[in-house]
């Protein structure tokens, strides 16, 4: 499944050609997060990249969904002590790490910190996004995808 007939690594669109309807719907859900009113795309990209680091996906880490300052990329694993990240971004990154380890361990204080900056809608949107980004990275790993670009089947 990971390779096409010509032997190169497959893209998302090539893998889900076997099941285009579900593949299209998952791609549409993934793409819907990049134009939210409630949470900036740059903040979500930081969270997606942190998940890529935690899951050990080099392909997801190298992929750029949204352009970020190179300093933020370089310092992402050291975000807690870095002034280059805003308090709102730090609240989201803290929730991202807890979500990645065990969603049951998220505290009310961590949830409140996100709501302080982005409201209840932003908090819901963030935990939705984390689930979908985590899923896309896992699909990339188990399918050994060539890229994290979520292209159409």
């Amino acid at each position: 499944m990971a390779e096409t007939a010509s032997g190169h690594k497959a893209s998302y669109g090539e893998v889900v050609e076997a099941l285009p309807e579900i593949g299209r719907q998952f791609a549409a859900l993934y793409r819907s997060f990049w134009s939210l009113e409630s949470v900036p795309a740059e903040t979500l990209e930081l969270c997606r990249l942190r998940l890529a680091q935690l899951l050990g996906s080099d392909v997801a880490w190298r992929f750029e969904e949204v352009s970020l300052a190179s300093r933020q990329r370089d310092e992402l694993s050291r975000w807690p002590d870095n002034d280059g990240f805003s308090p709102a971004q730090k609240a989201c990154l803290e929730l991202t790490e807890m979500h990645a380890m065990d969603a049951r361990s998220i505290t009310d204080a961590q949830a409140d910190a996100v709501k302080l900056h982005f409201g209840e809608v932003g908090f819901v949107a963030l935990v939705q996004a984390l689930g979908v980004f985590d899923a896309m990275i896992r699909l990339g790993l188990i399918w050994d995808l060539s890229s994290m670009k979520v292209d159409q089947p």
């Binding site: 969603a103 049951r104 935990v127 985590d134 896992r138 699909l139």
Partner: peptide, 12 residues
């Protein structure tokens, strides 16, 4: 991909 993300969201 769907159910794992959905259940983590529900717990969160």
């Amino acid at each position: 991909a769907y159910f794992n993300g959905f259940s983590r969201c529900a717990v969160s």
